[in-house]
Design a protein around this nucleic acid. Structure first.
Lengths: 169, 169
DNA sequence: AATTACGTACAGTTTAAACTGTACAAAGTA
DNA sequence: TACTTTGTACAGTTTAAACTGTACGTAATT
């Protein structure tokens, strides 16, 4: 009976990992990174790369790159244990704050970058228009210009909306 | 000069498509779908599959599947023109409303599904616990149970937050 | 100082996604 | 009715991402 208990519990464990991973994928995590995070999250205490490797049945190399991705996104942190040689990692505790912050930050960064690119393109377009002669061309250019304006204000609305969501605002 | 004008304008056009696509990818669109949407969006008037194929340099089949994906997400609509045989499609006008609605809806759907799955797993776990004897097992099970609870309240918080963002709320 | 343990860079492989061409069903045209 | 045209299903191919194993640098242990 003990063996069976163990097996079904393991199965439940695995189910939780795969199910909740889907939610985290909505935040832009790759399936692999999501599973890694959930594994850490439901584990009792921090884990070593070898333990993760064992738990997920993937190579240690995969764990190493996966952990780095999670660290970069601020979803996981390294933990020190005196007299212990291996690196230990644990998932950040507060899911909502962690994921919302990370997600919003990712968005702000991307939005800023896009905004700059669009502004630059818009300037290019303005210069180009100077040398346009045909009426048809002018019309096309103006239409594109208008669209770029729309994209830019879209960025602004998004930035505002996500700022509103920020748990740290 | 006309040729050069035309070329640089085309380049600007392409740049806009690739740049703004990145923003839309943040909403979960694949790079290909995003480019398709932007192509439609900046085009003056609706387009046929053949025109999209020409504009993006991809096969008509790709356009067909891409358009379907965009239709499913409510980002694009079919347009009728009397006496015209080919299907015409145009991008929805209001970017913010369109993308926020689509995004939020996607989230609500996924969240509901996950919530149900987690609830079911939780029930399984409760049954399993009945038959557990060892103390160690009980402890593990309780820990997992607690985590599932945390995941579920996470879902709730997310649902509330996204509801707040909904332009149609 | 020599040895062992650990994490990661890198090259190569496997796996999944995107894309294409052909073929066909449905609907329009002659 | 026969003939086009149009959109999409499907199988096969290309391309990109995920993953692995080996090899090596760094740091701890003896």
């Amino acid at each position: 009976m003990v063996l069976k208990d163990h097996r079904t519990f393991e199965e439940t464990h695995t189910k939780v990992i795969h199910e909740f991973s889907k939610t985290l994928e909505m935040f832009g995590l790759t399936p692999a990174d999501a599973r890694l995070f959930v594994t850490l999250y439901i584990n009792n205490g921090p884990m070593t790369l070898d333990e993760m490797s064992e738990a997920l049945g993937k190579s240690k190399t995969s764990m190493s790159t996966g952990i780095r991705a999670l660290l970069d996104q601020g979803l996981v942190e390294r933990v020190w244990k005196k007299g212990f040689r291996k690196d230990l990692y644990r998932a950040n505790e507060n899911l909502y704050k962690t994921f919302m912050s990370s997600y919003i930050q990712k968005w702000q960064l991307a939005a800023d970058e896009q905004e700059q690119s669009l502004k630059a393109i818009e300037n290019d377009l303005e210069e180009q228009v100077q040398s346009f002669s045909k009426d048809q061309q002018m019309k096309q250019a103006n239409h594109l210009y208008q669209r770029i304006e729309d994209m830019r204000s879209f960025h602004q609305l998004i930035a505002d909306a996500f700022h509103e969501l920020d748990p740290n605002k």
